[in-house]
């Protein structure tokens, strides 16, 4: 378990999180925030950054302590590690960005339960040392961030006719997408788009359709 395999090159680790194993659209992990906070780009960006930081720190600290914890209790230990970083992040955001925090606060706290973070610790941090864990965490976090910003931009542009709160269109093309239901439609459509790009590039889709469950 602790035998270090040579880590893959940095570029692979970064790109994997962004496209091939995009946490939202490919692995279909941590979907709650993807639907919930993406009514505006700003909210998506903030939560994305929070997840990125927590993911990188948790992956690295998980890698640091992997030799001293008994493998049987690794899940509770990892959960506690994540909870510590999330508590810190939660307080920082509440102190410095209180206006956005009002809207997404609950979801910042819920980062603890995001499956993507613990699954990266389990799959990657247990086998690799600290530096590769940093790159892997960064790639996954960036993939998550990009997913949230993409969905946020789509919904804000179509629903409110603006980006970052700046009006771009003089009208609201499709009010439906900022409604609760619109989040589900948006993620479904973007997921289908990822599948479409995959098919065009000549890959085969997984048998259960897009977004195999991790």
């Amino acid at each position: 378990m602790s035998a270090n395999r040579p880590p893959p090159p940095v570029s692979t680790m970064l790109m994997r999180g962004l496209f091939e194993e995009n946490p939202i659209f490919r692995l279909a992990l941590s979907l709650c925030p993807a639907v919930a906070v993406t009514t505006a780009v700003k909210n998506g960006l903030m939560l994305g950054v929070a997840v990125l930081v927590v993911q990188v720190l948790s992956s690295m600290s998980g890698s640091l302590v992997k030799h001293i914890i008994n493998p049987k209790i690794r899940i509770p230990v990892f959960t506690l590690l994540i909870a510590i970083w999330v508590s810190a992040m939660d307080m920082i955001l509440a102190a410095y960005f209180s206006d956005i925090y009002q809207q997404v606060g609950l979801y910042v706290k819920l980062i603890v339960a995001f499956a993507i973070i613990i699954s990266r610790m389990e799959l990657f941090s247990m086998k690799h040392s600290v530096v590769p864990c940093f790159w892997d965490g960064l790639g996954m976090g960036l993939g998550f961030l990009v997913g949230l910003v993409l969905a946020g931009a789509f919904r804000e542009l179509l629903g409110s006719g603006s980006i970052f709160g700046i009006a771009i269109l003089p009208f609201k093309p499709l009010l439906l997408v900022v409604l609760p239901a619109g989040g589900f439609f948006t993620i479904g459509l973007i997921m289908a788009m990822f599948n479409w790009v995959d098919v065009k590039r000549g890959h085969k889709l997984p048998s259960g359709g897009g977004g195999a469950h991790g």
Binding site: F184, G188, G210
Partner: peptide
């Protein structure tokens, strides 16, 4: 084909959300 599996599940969930 590109909608098989999760994408179509999301669309259904969206329709349920509308009715809720």
């Amino acid at each position: 084909m590109v909608f098989k599996g999760l994408p179509v599940a999301f669309i259904i969930a969206g329709l349920f959300a509308l009715s809720f």
